[in-house]
Nucleic acid binder design. Sequence first.
DNA 1: TCTGGGGTCCTAGGACCC
DNA 2: TCTGGGGTCCTAGGACCC
Length: 414
Amino acid sequence: MSSATILHADLDAFYASVEQMLDPKLKGRPIAVGGGVVLAASYEAKAFGVKGGMPGRQARALCPELHFVTGHFDQYQRLGDAAIGVLNDFTPAVERISIDEAFADVAGCEHLFGSPEAIAARVRQRVRDEVGLPISVGVARTKHLAKIASQVAKPDGLVVVDPATELAFLHDLPVGLMWGVGPATRTRLADVGVATIGQLAAMPGNSLEALLGPAASNKLRALAWNRDERAVESGRRARSIGAQSALGRKPATEAVYRPALLYLADRVASRLRAKSFAARTVTVRVRFADLRAITRSVTLDKPIAATGMLAEVATDLVAVALADHPAEAFISLVAIATSHLEEVSALQLDLPFDLGDERRRPGSKRGAARWLVDRAMDRVRERFGREAVGYAAIALGRAASVPDGFRELAQREL
DNA sequence: TCTGGGGTCCTAGGACCC
DNA sequence: TCTGGGGTCCTAGGACCC
């Protein structure tokens, strides 16, 4: 049996811990980052039942002492990078999976740095000393078990799972800790009396498959027996890029969705161009007032990266989606996602070549002109910031329900 | 309990080709 | 003309994760 060399490192209550570090008066107090919505809660606030994603009003009802702070979004990225960077001092095999969390495989590093457990302890100490933040680490033979171990270790702990006793450790834990078991699956399992990972592991294969379908049941069964074959992969590439905007409750009219889509297309297309990507598939999502949502997508012959073209395709798709639901009078969200991303060379990015703009107007000069406008705007923004220049309709149409820094952060490449 | 934004992966049906 | 089988791609929806 191979040994436990995979680390999963996860910063504790990340945004809230950063705020408590930046302002020592907040230490030991229940705080929440955000306002209308709780983006993150400190452990003191979590003790009252406050959770990320919860409406601010509800959080305040649960915890009258709750102190809301505006996020220092620029700091989060910097500090997250610094913490994960500590792992890179021990091994190049680091897989970042979000702003505050990463896997590392330290196989072969023992002669340099000691046992995986010793490395994990040093990582925790260095993040504490150099970044000033608590971080929990799980060490195990597989990625899945390492991630579970770090959850068990929280807050501010270290859990090493010995391969000899890993199933005993795993099987006592609740199924909800497993990767891939969310509210829907947990409810289905609870309905047949399955609450722990051990109970799931003991279920007959065919009844599990009848409950969850072949793919999910095979995956969960493998995880429940700790047969996780996935390797730590450094340098993974994005498969889609998108943006969405909540609208409150607005009439389902073009006057509402057109400017919103132009704003979103501008964000998405400029990110595509910044990464030298163009997208062949465009998907839009429309959420109605009652939160039911539908999607419409189209796959083009050639990839696109121009703001105007993306906005036009998205607007057409939303019009089609709404035409299919004539009874819906109000919408609460629109989204654009692009996928089938193809790399286009830096040289191509500097040329006003077709990039699919001729979808409707073969050989059109308008496509080229739009491309040049986009590139010019990208350059101005690189120098002076995103707000320096933009489409007038975008400036008029936007609604800032979430701080802009959060969006910049969420979209940054990890 | 109805809240925000950015992602990944899976399923099922249909079109199309050989 | 109808029948059969397999593979690939596309579309829409859903579950899940941070």
